[in-house]
Simulated assay, not measured.
Amino acid sequence: MKQSFKYWILVLLPVISFGQKQIQETNPIYQPLIPASKVSLLKDVDVIFNTRMAFDNYFLDGSHTNSLFSMNQLRLEVKGKIHEKIFFRFRNRYTKTAETNTIDNVNRSVDMAYLTFDLDSQTKLSAGKMIGDWGGYELLMNPIEILSYNTINNYNENFLVGASLSYALDDHKNKFNFQLLNSRTKTFQDQYGTTAPPGITATETPLAAVGNWKGSFFEGKLETTYSYSHFIDADNAGRNFISLGNKYKNNKLVLYYDFQYSKEDLDQKCVVTNIIKSKYPYAAEKVSYVENWIRAEYMVRPKLNLLLTLMNDNAYWKGTSNSSENNLMVTTYGIIPTVEYSPFSDINIKFYAGYVAKRNNYSAYAQDNFGVKNGSTGQLSFGIIAPLLIL
């Protein structure tokens, strides 16, 4: 029996070996998706998943309404150099409806998609969809760090298609940026439709011009980002926007203060429009928004950070007559105390607990004429903030 078994082994071994050789010869060696010659490009490219997830508890006028888990932010960002003088940046938001804009033909979920060309060591030219450089640190921060925005940045269209030219002085402590952007992402008809006031018609040039100055003083302890912007929203209807952002950093303390003022011939934020809509079926004209935003960060220990954000906004309307008097419509207050804990020293992941409290105080004029009532909202969150650097 043993001899018979050995016989069959000797007979089949060459056949098996031949078969294995045939299989190896017929299976090609597949090339990697990224050729070896291109791998070197990845050293200058970052892939980041900007995430914030939490267990959120909501309150209305002091009463609990619901509690649930939320993916508050999920933005994929890819950025880096693809050439010695060419930089690109792309960021897509997966927590926003991906409907296509009717002016720039880009999904609203795309925050940024642009190229930057280094013309020389001090001058850069960018083109594509980018963040409006109106100034102010609230908007410049990574969105996963902002639990709630103040009124202007919350309702503004902050990501627009256009071009920018920036110039830095020799010491690189003063930088100047000029942008020419679309003033909105939707056509006049899509945005206003039947709510366009009589006599207000679409413009042939819905554009915005932005001028920004960034400064650095006292060895970087004090930084500024100031801007003036003018928007053409319709024929004979525009917006003028001033934003003054200030940042102070010293040891464990970081302070931010933004002042913003928006004067709008046609209400783009729609806060005033929503107040008067019960009696006036059109978008409000001659409105203005004045707001303040303060944020303090104090690192108690290397892994423990305390934050406090204060915000305020005042919305005004001149009414339907030719009156020159600004009627205060609503004052909004906000406070956001937050505690952050970073357990790891080698990766940027933070556990946080924060409470967003906001209150709308309507003026006597708004209450008497439009029947609005004061109210408050609250949101208590326990979650994770993580800009995950994958590559």
Rank of each mutant, 00 (worst) to 15 (best):
P337G: 05
E84P: 10
F69V: 09
N158E: 03
I86R: 04
M1S: 12
F188E: 02
S4F: 12
L304M: 12
Y58F: 13
K247F: 13
F188A: 01
L253E: 02
S381G: 02
Y248D: 08
K43W: 01
Q191F: 09
D56M: 12
L165P: 01
V272W: 00
Y365R: 04
K38L: 15
G245I: 06
W317N: 04
S342P: 05
I384D: 01
A364Q: 09
Y58R: 04
M53T: 15
F87G: 03
Y94C: 02
G136R: 01
Y365I: 09
V272H: 01
N251K: 11
H83K: 14
G354S: 02
K277G: 05
F351K: 01
V372D: 06
I232F: 12
I144R: 04
I103T: 15
N312D: 14
S243V: 10
Q73A: 13
M311I: 06
Y362W: 10
N105G: 00
P143G: 01
N314C: 07
F176M: 02
L180I: 14
N361D: 11
N374R: 06
P32E: 10
Y352S: 06
S67W: 10
I144C: 05
T100W: 11
K249I: 10
A202C: 09
G319A: 04
N246V: 06
D170E: 14
N92L: 00
N142C: 04
L41W: 12
S262Q: 12
L304V: 14
S345N: 10
